[in-house]
Design a protein around this nucleic acid. Sequence first.
DNA 1: ATGACGGTGTGGCACCGA
Length: 258
Amino acid sequence: MKFATWNVNSLAVRLPQLLAWLEANPVDALVLQETKLTDDKFPTMDIGAAGYQVQWFGQKTYNGVALISKTPATDVVKNITGYADEQARLIAGTVDGVRGPVRVIGGYFPNGQALDSDKFVYKMAWLDGLKAWLKTELATHEKLVLMGDFNIAPEDRDCYDPAAFVGQTHTSPQERAHFQALLDMGLTDAYRLFEQPPKSYSWWDYRMLGFQKNKGLRIDHILVSNALKGSVSACVIDRQMRKNPQPSDHAPVIVTID
DNA sequence: ATGACGGTGTGGCACCGA
Protein backbone atom coordinates (compact mmCIF):
# COMPACT_ATOMS: atom_id res chain seq x y z
CA MET A 1 0.00 0.00 0.00
CA LYS A 2 1.10 3.55 -0.67
CA PHE A 3 -0.22 6.66 1.03
CA ALA A 4 0.87 10.20 0.29
CA THR A 5 0.39 13.83 1.21
CA TRP A 6 0.96 16.94 -0.88
CA ASN A 7 0.33 20.61 -0.28
CA VAL A 8 -0.48 21.72 -3.84
CA ASN A 9 -0.74 25.48 -3.16
CA SER A 10 -3.76 25.93 -5.44
CA LEU A 11 -5.25 22.91 -7.16
CA ALA A 12 -6.46 25.12 -9.99
CA VAL A 13 -2.85 25.76 -10.92
CA ARG A 14 -1.46 22.34 -9.99
CA LEU A 15 -4.14 20.04 -11.47
CA PRO A 16 -2.05 18.98 -14.50
CA GLN A 17 0.86 18.16 -12.19
CA LEU A 18 -1.46 16.24 -9.87
CA LEU A 19 -2.82 14.09 -12.69
CA ALA A 20 0.67 13.40 -14.02
CA TRP A 21 1.86 12.54 -10.53
CA LEU A 22 -1.01 10.12 -9.93
CA GLU A 23 -0.25 8.44 -13.23
CA ALA A 24 3.38 7.93 -12.20
CA ASN A 25 2.56 7.17 -8.55
CA PRO A 26 -0.47 4.89 -8.26
CA VAL A 27 -1.18 5.41 -4.56
CA ASP A 28 -3.98 3.92 -2.50
CA ALA A 29 -4.69 7.31 -0.98
CA LEU A 30 -3.39 10.86 -1.36
CA VAL A 31 -4.38 13.83 0.77
CA LEU A 32 -4.09 17.35 -0.60
CA GLN A 33 -3.78 20.64 1.22
CA GLU A 34 -4.29 24.24 0.11
CA THR A 35 -6.60 23.40 -2.77
CA LYS A 36 -7.87 27.01 -2.48
CA LEU A 37 -11.12 26.07 -4.19
CA THR A 38 -14.74 26.36 -3.21
CA ASP A 39 -16.51 22.99 -3.40
CA ASP A 40 -18.37 23.87 -6.61
CA LYS A 41 -15.06 24.43 -8.42
CA PHE A 42 -13.44 21.16 -7.37
CA PRO A 43 -12.17 19.15 -10.42
CA THR A 44 -14.12 16.00 -9.55
CA MET A 45 -14.41 14.80 -13.14
CA ASP A 46 -10.69 15.02 -13.92
CA ILE A 47 -9.76 13.01 -10.86
CA GLY A 48 -12.51 10.49 -11.53
CA ALA A 49 -11.32 10.10 -15.11
CA ALA A 50 -7.87 9.28 -13.74
CA GLY A 51 -9.43 6.30 -11.98
CA TYR A 52 -9.68 7.68 -8.47
CA GLN A 53 -12.38 8.38 -5.94
CA VAL A 54 -12.30 11.74 -4.21
CA GLN A 55 -13.74 13.57 -1.24
CA TRP A 56 -13.18 17.30 -0.90
CA PHE A 57 -13.76 20.14 1.46
CA GLY A 58 -12.82 23.69 0.55
CA GLN A 59 -13.46 27.39 0.87
CA LYS A 60 -12.68 30.52 -1.04
CA THR A 61 -9.07 31.70 -1.46
CA TYR A 62 -7.47 29.87 1.45
CA ASN A 63 -7.02 26.38 2.85
CA GLY A 64 -9.05 23.51 1.38
CA VAL A 65 -8.30 19.79 1.61
CA ALA A 66 -9.10 16.62 -0.32
CA LEU A 67 -8.84 12.85 0.01
CA ILE A 68 -8.14 10.95 -3.19
CA SER A 69 -8.34 7.16 -3.01
CA LYS A 70 -8.50 4.00 -5.09
CA THR A 71 -11.46 2.62 -3.16
CA PRO A 72 -14.31 4.90 -2.08
CA ALA A 73 -13.69 6.49 1.30
CA THR A 74 -16.30 5.75 3.94
CA ASP A 75 -17.18 7.45 7.22
CA VAL A 76 -15.90 10.73 5.83
CA VAL A 77 -15.32 13.50 8.33
CA LYS A 78 -14.71 17.14 7.41
CA ASN A 79 -12.80 19.17 9.98
CA ILE A 80 -12.18 18.09 13.54
CA THR A 81 -15.27 16.69 15.23
CA GLY A 82 -15.73 18.65 18.44
CA TYR A 83 -13.67 21.64 17.33
CA ALA A 84 -15.68 24.37 15.63
CA ASP A 85 -13.60 25.81 12.80
CA GLU A 86 -14.47 28.26 10.07
CA GLN A 87 -11.48 27.17 8.03
CA ALA A 88 -11.45 24.03 5.86
CA ARG A 89 -8.37 22.21 7.16
CA LEU A 90 -9.02 18.51 7.65
CA ILE A 91 -10.60 15.55 5.92
CA ALA A 92 -10.71 11.92 6.99
CA GLY A 93 -12.07 8.71 5.56
CA THR A 94 -11.65 4.95 5.69
CA VAL A 95 -10.24 3.15 2.65
CA ASP A 96 -9.60 -0.52 1.89
CA GLY A 97 -6.10 -1.70 2.68
CA VAL A 98 -4.43 -5.01 1.87
CA ARG A 99 -5.20 -6.36 5.34
CA GLY A 100 -8.37 -4.55 6.23
CA PRO A 101 -9.55 -0.97 6.44
CA VAL A 102 -7.19 1.95 7.02
CA ARG A 103 -8.28 5.26 8.48
CA VAL A 104 -6.72 8.10 6.49
CA ILE A 105 -6.60 11.61 7.93
CA GLY A 106 -5.32 14.59 5.96
CA GLY A 107 -4.72 17.90 7.68
CA TYR A 108 -3.57 21.38 6.78
CA PHE A 109 -2.38 22.52 10.18
CA PRO A 110 -2.48 26.27 10.87
CA ASN A 111 0.66 28.24 10.12
CA GLY A 112 0.72 30.33 13.27
CA GLN A 113 2.44 33.33 11.66
CA ALA A 114 4.19 34.59 14.82
CA LEU A 115 4.42 33.38 18.39
CA ASP A 116 2.62 36.45 19.75
CA SER A 117 -0.18 36.50 17.17
CA ASP A 118 -3.82 35.47 17.39
CA LYS A 119 -3.02 32.99 14.64
CA PHE A 120 -0.63 31.21 16.96
CA VAL A 121 -3.34 31.00 19.62
CA TYR A 122 -5.53 29.46 16.92
CA LYS A 123 -2.78 27.01 15.97
CA MET A 124 -2.47 25.82 19.58
CA ALA A 125 -6.25 25.50 19.98
CA TRP A 126 -6.51 23.60 16.69
CA LEU A 127 -3.78 21.20 17.83
CA ASP A 128 -5.58 20.70 21.16
CA GLY A 129 -8.78 19.94 19.27
CA LEU A 130 -6.97 17.53 16.96
CA LYS A 131 -5.47 15.67 19.89
CA ALA A 132 -8.81 15.26 21.66
CA TRP A 133 -10.55 14.00 18.51
CA LEU A 134 -7.64 11.75 17.55
CA LYS A 135 -7.99 9.92 20.83
CA THR A 136 -11.37 8.58 19.76
CA GLU A 137 -10.20 7.99 16.18
CA LEU A 138 -7.31 5.85 17.42
CA ALA A 139 -9.62 3.98 19.75
CA THR A 140 -11.94 3.06 16.88
CA HIS A 141 -9.42 2.60 14.05
CA GLU A 142 -6.46 0.35 14.74
CA LYS A 143 -4.80 1.09 11.41
CA LEU A 144 -4.54 4.84 10.99
CA VAL A 145 -2.36 7.28 9.07
CA LEU A 146 -2.26 10.97 9.95
CA MET A 147 -0.78 12.92 7.07
CA GLY A 148 -0.51 16.47 5.91
CA ASP A 149 1.19 19.82 6.15
CA PHE A 150 1.77 20.01 9.89
CA ASN A 151 3.57 23.36 9.73
CA ILE A 152 5.87 22.00 12.43
CA ALA A 153 9.53 21.04 12.00
CA PRO A 154 9.80 18.42 14.76
CA GLU A 155 13.56 18.60 15.33
CA ASP A 156 16.42 20.96 14.59
CA ARG A 157 17.59 18.67 11.79
CA ASP A 158 14.26 19.37 10.08
CA CYS A 159 15.18 23.04 9.65
CA TYR A 160 17.90 24.52 7.43
CA ASP A 161 18.90 27.10 10.04
CA PRO A 162 17.56 26.34 13.53
CA ALA A 163 19.33 29.32 15.09
CA ALA A 164 17.58 31.72 12.72
CA PHE A 165 14.22 30.22 13.67
CA VAL A 166 14.54 30.75 17.41
CA GLY A 167 11.57 32.86 18.45
CA GLN A 168 9.66 32.04 15.29
CA THR A 169 6.93 29.59 14.41
CA HIS A 170 7.38 26.03 13.09
CA THR A 171 10.27 25.17 15.42
CA SER A 172 9.05 26.57 18.76
CA PRO A 173 9.01 24.36 21.88
CA GLN A 174 5.22 24.77 22.08
CA GLU A 175 4.69 23.43 18.55
CA ARG A 176 7.20 20.64 19.04
CA ALA A 177 5.47 19.64 22.28
CA HIS A 178 2.27 19.20 20.30
CA PHE A 179 4.07 17.07 17.73
CA GLN A 180 5.56 14.96 20.52
CA ALA A 181 2.10 14.60 22.07
CA LEU A 182 0.92 13.02 18.82
CA LEU A 183 3.82 10.56 18.99
CA ASP A 184 2.99 9.85 22.62
CA MET A 185 -0.52 8.86 21.57
CA GLY A 186 0.94 5.92 19.67
CA LEU A 187 1.87 7.45 16.34
CA THR A 188 5.24 7.18 14.60
CA ASP A 189 6.92 9.55 12.14
CA ALA A 190 7.29 7.17 9.19
CA TYR A 191 10.09 9.23 7.64
CA ARG A 192 12.33 8.69 10.66
CA LEU A 193 11.87 4.92 10.64
CA PHE A 194 14.60 4.91 8.01
CA GLU A 195 18.03 6.35 7.43
CA GLN A 196 17.48 9.45 5.33
CA PRO A 197 19.71 11.90 3.49
CA PRO A 198 20.89 14.75 5.74
CA LYS A 199 19.13 18.07 5.21
CA SER A 200 15.92 16.44 4.03
CA TYR A 201 13.10 18.93 3.67
CA SER A 202 9.59 18.98 2.22
CA TRP A 203 9.10 22.73 1.81
CA TRP A 204 11.32 25.45 0.38
CA ASP A 205 10.57 29.16 0.17
CA TYR A 206 9.86 30.37 -3.34
CA ARG A 207 12.02 33.40 -2.61
CA MET A 208 15.77 33.82 -2.52
CA LEU A 209 16.46 30.58 -4.40
CA GLY A 210 15.24 28.60 -1.41
CA PHE A 211 15.13 25.27 -3.24
CA GLN A 212 18.36 25.76 -5.16
CA LYS A 213 20.14 26.50 -1.88
CA ASN A 214 18.18 23.77 -0.07
CA LYS A 215 16.95 26.25 2.51
CA GLY A 216 13.93 24.28 3.61
CA LEU A 217 11.88 22.78 6.36
CA ARG A 218 10.53 19.27 6.86
CA ILE A 219 6.98 20.12 7.84
CA ASP A 220 4.94 17.64 5.77
CA HIS A 221 4.60 14.40 7.66
CA ILE A 222 3.10 10.93 7.67
CA LEU A 223 2.42 9.45 11.09
CA VAL A 224 1.35 5.82 11.36
CA SER A 225 -0.37 3.97 14.19
CA ASN A 226 1.30 1.09 16.02
CA ALA A 227 -0.68 -1.50 14.07
CA LEU A 228 0.94 -0.25 10.84
CA LYS A 229 4.38 0.73 12.11
CA GLY A 230 5.95 -2.72 11.70
CA SER A 231 4.81 -2.98 8.08
CA VAL A 232 6.24 0.32 6.86
CA SER A 233 8.92 -0.48 4.26
CA ALA A 234 9.75 2.98 2.90
CA CYS A 235 9.06 6.69 3.28
CA VAL A 236 10.35 9.25 0.81
CA ILE A 237 10.01 12.90 -0.11
CA ASP A 238 9.47 13.40 -3.85
CA ARG A 239 11.87 16.34 -4.30
CA GLN A 240 11.63 16.04 -8.07
CA MET A 241 8.22 17.71 -7.95
CA ARG A 242 9.85 20.89 -6.69
CA LYS A 243 11.91 21.02 -9.89
CA ASN A 244 8.85 21.23 -12.13
CA PRO A 245 8.01 24.41 -13.94
CA GLN A 246 5.47 26.23 -11.74
CA PRO A 247 6.04 23.96 -8.75
CA SER A 248 4.21 23.99 -5.46
CA ASP A 249 6.50 25.17 -2.67
CA HIS A 250 5.91 21.75 -1.03
CA ALA A 251 6.99 18.32 -2.27
CA PRO A 252 4.84 15.19 -1.83
CA VAL A 253 5.71 12.68 0.90
CA ILE A 254 4.99 9.00 0.24
CA VAL A 255 4.89 6.02 2.60
CA THR A 256 4.92 2.38 1.55
CA ILE A 257 3.27 -0.14 3.85
CA ASP A 258 3.47 -3.87 3.09
C1' DA B 1 17.88 44.87 7.63
C1' DT B 2 14.81 44.44 4.13
C1' DG B 3 12.42 41.97 0.78
C1' DA B 4 12.45 38.53 -2.14
C1' DC B 5 8.12 34.46 -4.90
C1' DG B 6 3.73 32.74 -6.00
C1' DG B 7 -1.35 32.54 -5.52
C1' DT B 8 -5.92 34.85 -4.89
C1' DG B 9 -9.23 38.52 -5.31
C1' DT B 10 -12.68 42.26 -8.29
C1' DG B 11 -7.50 44.10 -8.49
C1' DG B 12 -4.46 48.35 -10.58
C1' DC B 13 -2.03 46.59 -4.94
C1' DA B 14 -3.01 44.07 -0.35
C1' DC B 15 -3.16 39.87 1.91
C1' DC B 16 -1.18 35.48 3.13
C1' DG B 17 1.90 31.71 3.22
C1' DA B 18 6.28 29.43 6.27
